[in-house]
Design a protein around this nucleic acid. Structure first.
Length: 777
DNA sequence: GTGTGTTGTCATTCC
DNA sequence: TCGGAATGACAACAC
């Protein structure tokens, strides 16, 4: 039963801590104060006033003070509350300084590289500009960026690969880890394989080299259009691509595009999407939007101004929250943690570069790698100004509600990535978290999770530093000094105080102090408190035939502080001047009472007598008054058999016997009390260590999470750029590019890439969107 | 004089 | 039933 209670209690505590780690706030106080006896007793244990747990047996058997069965039962007096406060503090973003430094070391080279190469691929891509799109929002974000937290965080790894496109081993490892998270979201393992990425690079090269082949595509595409089938998003059935609109009913199979997508798109052939079809579609411009914006989805080759994405917006929001939180905790810490100074040019580039010249020569290769860039632009101002007359006939099915639009296309996996805010004005605020996009969903959930964590911390109104301060204050209320207990030797502070007090009060008699301390109680190595005796008493004991007693004495003396110089080295013990000398052998006291001749003064005999009286405990006084023929040490420490044998050797009165038994009882109880207090202290220290370990683990997990999110974003941006590249190269029979507002690419589960009308894609996307919602219900 | 920390002691329970 | 351990509560003491 005891072990069961222990496991229950520990399990509940651990569960609570785990919940706190994942952001679920558990207010155990409400349970504790709700006077629900079962739960209260499970967590805190029954009140020791009514139920006591005998654990000395365990201690005896284990010969030590490990995790005490009662360790968590400090009777809600301070331990439980302190634990709870620390548990709550866990869900705040707190990274120990030491660990922050470690991360700095890990990331510093990267940051330095990024900082020294402001014009690298990332800068190039981010320079495409968003100023036309985001407007004042940019300013806000730039100001946030100057604080060097959120965007810098993302830029940690976003700068490395743009030039060569080679993913570092770290990136590969990260993607590997990501895959484990995303595998249930439809991302096949192959997309993370290095060989696959190699293939992607090859395709990129191929695209660059064979740009001139674009002219041949339309013809092939027209033929393929007739061959290809559309796959129903719900049933998986294949059917001829028929779209109301006559010549626009095209399901264009483009071998080149297909290969490109197969090679580069994270959704491999084996990918499983939320629905049977994963349509890679870009969002359709809403009817309310300016016509000139409807064609702004074109090839990166025509890059112009770029637009922020919903997910990016959320990401930045998240980072902003984290930034605020971290800045609240420690500005320097946050800067170190995310390894980017406030003025980091990268972070500025990352955020937005409104005045940066638009690079019109962004290659596909760069575009694909531009996933590392936050602000990779795919929307050319030239295209935005293109008239789209005649295309509106294909849009009647498109809802005018931009929010629903965004969510619709979000359900088609990539819409949230592909459209600027001007296409979905309110999407940033409303549609983001609901995006059923597998990647987006993951990212969104992670973001929301993170935001919830941060919100919790902000909501509670004080940062971890304050929390720790509160903890310390609470510790001080516990009645036990933790500060002194951090010292290994502090465990014997009480004993040291006893000894030191005797030495200090002996008025400059060093010899007496050492002698008296030898007679004082001492801790054993396990913390057991016993009474050592001087040699005289031992001799007397041997003379009396006390066999087997010596080993116990040696045990008790293992950690005794017999050297006052040791105590003088412990400044925190100096102020302790209590004189609680319990059993001082009269002989020892006599010897201790003798001051050095040099300090001997007239009238010192009276002082010696007073000192003697002071040194002796009440029981010793009583024993002396009752003329007890043996020392209190023996009375207390002798085993019961030997003790009884000793009593039988003397003719003692009833009063004497009673006093002796009281002395023995009190002496043992005194040791027990000291043991008990030491156990309490050890328990508190162990719990503190546990909390520290948990905080470390949480900080590490948070760092890993940020890494995962960053890698995920990079992958999404790669997919986005490739989609744009493929779609931008498509030409109809007349050699004209397809309007992104009318057509969308759809990537089927069998690996084929279809060009389908936007309306059809919307319908499929809506169907897919409903499915996850139904599942959630 | 008061607050706080330490230690001893008592009462009680449990093994 | 006894001895002893454990522990909450309280008092004494020192600072």
């Amino acid at each position: 039963m005891l072990s069961l209670k222990k496991y229950l209690t520990e399990g509940l505590l651990q569960f609570t801590i785990l919940l706190s780690l994942i952001g679920v706030r558990v207010d155990v106080d409400t349970y504790l104060t709700s006077q629900l006896p079962p739960l209260r007793e499970i967590i805190l244990g029954p009140s020791s006033a009514y139920t006591q747990t005998q654990f000395h047996n365990l201690r005896n058997t284990l010969d030590g003070y490990g995790i005490h069965p009662k360790s968590i039962d400090l009777d809600n007096y301070f331990t439980a509350r302190r634990l709870l406060s620390q548990v709550r503090a866990l869900d705040r973003f707190q990274v120990p300084t030491t660990e922050v430094n470690a991360w700095l070391v890990h990331r510093d080279p990267e940051g330095s590289v990024s900082g020294s190469q402001p014009s690298s691929g990332l800068a190039l891509e981010s320079s495409s500009g968003l100023q036309d799109v985001t407007g004042p929002d940019n300013g806000v974000r730039e100001s946030e960026t100057e604080q060097g937290f959120s965007e810098d965080l993302e830029d940690l790894g976003a700068v490395a690969p743009p030039v060569s496109g080679d993913l570092t081993k770290e990136d590969i490892d990260l993607i590997d880890i990501l895959w484990r998270q995303d595998i249930d979201l439809g991302a096949g393992r192959e997309i993370f394989d290095y060989s696959h990425r190699q293939k992607e690079q090859d395709v990129d090269k191929e695209l660059q080299d064979g740009a001139e082949q674009e002219d041949t595509w339309p013809g092939e595409g027209a033929e393929a259009l007739a061959r290809n089938l559309l796959v129903d998003g719900e049933t998986g059935e294949s059917f001829p691509a028929q779209v109301p609109g006559g010549e626009d009913q095209t399901a264009l199979s483009l071998e080149e595009c297909l290969r490109l997508l197969e090679a580069t798109c994270p959704f491999g052939e084996n990918a499983e999407f939320p629905a049977d079809i994963s349509s890679i579609t870009e969002a359709v411009p809403s009817e309310s939007e300016p016509p000139g914006l409807q064609n702004n989805l074109l090839s990166p080759l025509l890059t112009g101004t770029e637009s922020p994405f919903d997910l990016e917006q959320q990401w930045q929001d998240l980072m902003s929250i984290m930034e605020m939180q971290a800045m609240e905790v420690n500005t320097s810490t946050s800067e170190i943690l995310y390894d980017a100074p406030p003025g980091d040019p990268l972070s500025t580039n990352y955020s937005l570069a409104p005045n940066t010249p638009i690079n019109q020569n962004v290659s596909l290769h760069q575009a694909s790698l531009g996933g590392c860039s936050q602000d990779f632009s795919l929307f050319s101002p030239e295209v935005e100004s293109l008239p789209v007359a005649g295309s509106s006939t294909l849009l009647p099915l498109v809802p005018s509600n931009s929010t629903s639009l965004n969510s619709t296309f979000g359900s088609t996996n990539l819409a949230g990535l592909f459209f600027p805010p001007q296409l979905n004005g309110t999407a940033n605020d409303t549609a983001g978290p609901e995006l059923p996009d597998p990647l987006g969903g993951l990212l969104d959930e992670a973001m929301l999770d993170e935001i919830s964590l941060m919100d919790l911390a902000i909501e509670e109104g004080f940062n971890p530093v304050q929390a720790s301060q509160l903890e310390e204050e609470f510790d001080s209320d516990s009645g036990l000094s933790l500060d002194s207990s951090h010292s290994p030797s502090s465990l014997s502070s009480s004993e040291g105080s006893s000894s030191s007090s005797s030495s200090s009060s002996s008025s400059s008699s060093s010899s007496s102090s050492s002698t008296s301390s030898s007679a004082s109680s001492s801790f054993s190595e396990e913390g057991a408190v016993g009474y050592s005796s001087d040699s005289e008493t031992l001799d007397l004991e041997e003379a009396e035939g006390a066999v087997g007693y010596q080993p116990e004495y040696s045990k008790f003396c293992r950690m005794s502080y017999q050297d006052p110089s040791q105590l003088s080295c412990l400044p925190y013990l100096e102020h302790v001047g209590h004189n609680h000398t319990y059993n001082m052998a009269p002989s020892a006291l006599d010897s201790a009472d003798l001051p050095p001749p040099s300090t001997l003064k007239k009238g010192s005999k009276e002082k010696q007598t007073d000192f003697l009286d002071k040194q002796m405990s009440r029981d010793e006084h009583r024993a002396r008054a009752m003329k007890i023929p043996f020392t209190n040490d023996k009375i207390i420490n002798l085993p019961v058999e030997e003790f009884n044998e000793l009593l039988s050797k003397y003719q003692l009165s009833e009063a004497q016997l009673s006093l002796i038994r009281d002395i023995r009882r009190r002496g043992k109880n005194k040791m027990a009390a000291q043991n008990c207090r030491k156990r309490k202290l050890d328990t508190i220290l162990n719990l503190e260590r546990d909390v520290e370990d948990l905080q470390r683990d949480k900080a590490r997990l948070l760092r890993e999470k940020v890494e995962f999110l960053r890698s995920l974003r990079q992958m999404k941006q790669k997919v986005q750029s490739l989609y744009q590249e493929v779609f931008g190269r498509l030409r109809d029979e007349n050699g004209r590019p397809y309007s992104p507002s009318q057509y969308a690419l759809q990537y089927a589960g069998d690996g084929s890439v279809l060009l389908i009308p936007r309306t059809l894609a919307d319908q499929q996307a809506r169907r897919q969107e409903r499915k996850p919602k139904d599942r959630r219900k």
